[in-house]
Design a protein around this nucleic acid. Structure first.
Lengths: 193, 193
DNA sequence: GTCATTCTAGAACAATCGATAAAGAATCGG
DNA sequence: CCGATTCTTTATCGATTGTTCTAGAATGAC
């Protein structure tokens, strides 16, 4: 029933993900991806169809392993505002001064301008927004409000703040100031009427 | 003393800027730039040295004409928090669903990951932060605070919010929700202790 | 008008791009 | 062992990339 696969798919996707995060989609060449994955070009095309297919798989891996993992670790269900704060602060601990950017942020920018948004970007933003909303409604100041309209609006505001932080981190902004901005935001969120 | 220039530099930079905003630096080819500027490749290289030189000039034009122009129009000195609010809201009026992204945001992301930040990105972020700080200190709630430390921290927080809004706009986020987020942010800023 | 100088136009450059094709290597059912 | 199938490798494809070169057109100084 055919030759057996020699590569570890997860390791391959991890390597490809690194390259796409560093150099973007357009900036990542097939040769770069060969080196990072250990696969030869032919194998890449056999396994993933084309460059866009490998990217899609790598993006899926990012959403699954990195994004969801980060949420589970720092802002699990029940952690409320304190969890969200830790989630935001965790962005500052990225290595290499954000040389590995957030794939969502980077691709929202790189693929933006088309008529419709990239589906994986949309899905990831949706997961973040849903998470923000859920943790917000766990906080007493938001459950008192009756419907979740206020939490919805705050979730959108936090989503923008979150993406902006990643832009500034990647832009080389000093992290102490960003930490202070995060603390301010959540301190104010906790003492809200 | 030599042949006279036939092209209008401002028009050329404007055309190049459009391409770079739409497709990014890597995604803009010299042929694209020829078409958008009306110049032939030879002339481009004669006038600007190379692709990076044209980009640098176009980025300078963006900071001068678009960014500073927007600030002067919506948040001139003395306009305080109300000016800042208008500045933020003006981001939503960008045409084509953000198909022309903010060059600062896009380049902070695309050139991020290097050891040191792109100087023009740094300059533009600095101008924004300085503007935010200045308008904040015009507001009574911030001048009461003695030193400008609070205004500094809020300026950084607003800078992240600003960049995040541009990411979401480019990502195709619906603008009504973003408008609400902006209004919430500034309503809360106006009623601060 | 001549000359040095500056700009423009267009062809061409080597290098790299994403992608394909062909052949060998490994696996399993028969 | 055979043959069908699947994966890996290698070489190579045409297209496009950023850039350079060369010839021609326009300018001001003399």
């Amino acid at each position: 029933m055919g030759r057996t696969r020699e590569f570890d798919e997860e390791a391959v996707l991890k390597g490809a993900m690194h390259i796409f995060r560093k150099h973007g989609y357009q900036g990542a060449s097939i040769r770069d991806l060969e080196e990072a994955t250990g696969l030869k070009g032919g194998s890449i095309y056999h396994a993933f169809g084309d460059k866009a297919g490998l990217f899609d798989a790598a993006f899926g891996h990012y959403n699954r392993a990195v994004l969801e993992g980060r949420i589970e670790r720092f802002a699990p269900p029940g952690s409320g505002l304190r969890g969200l704060r830790e989630l935001f602060l965790s962005l500052l601990h990225e290595p290499d001064h954000g040389s590995l950017g957030c794939l969502i942020t980077n691709m929202a920018v790189e693929f933006g301008g088309g008529v419709n948004p990239h589906p994986r970007v949309e899905a990831a933003l949706g997961l973040l927004r849903t998470t923000f909303h859920a943790r917000l409604t766990e906080a007493s100041t938001f459950t008192r409000e009756g419907d979740g309209a206020k939490a919805n609006r705050t979730a959108t505001r936090l989503l923008a703040f979150y993406q902006g932080l990643l832009v500034l981190i990647r832009g080389g902004e000093d992290k102490a100031g960003l930490r202070q901005a995060i603390e301010d935001e959540f301190n104010q969120l906790e003492t809200m009427s």
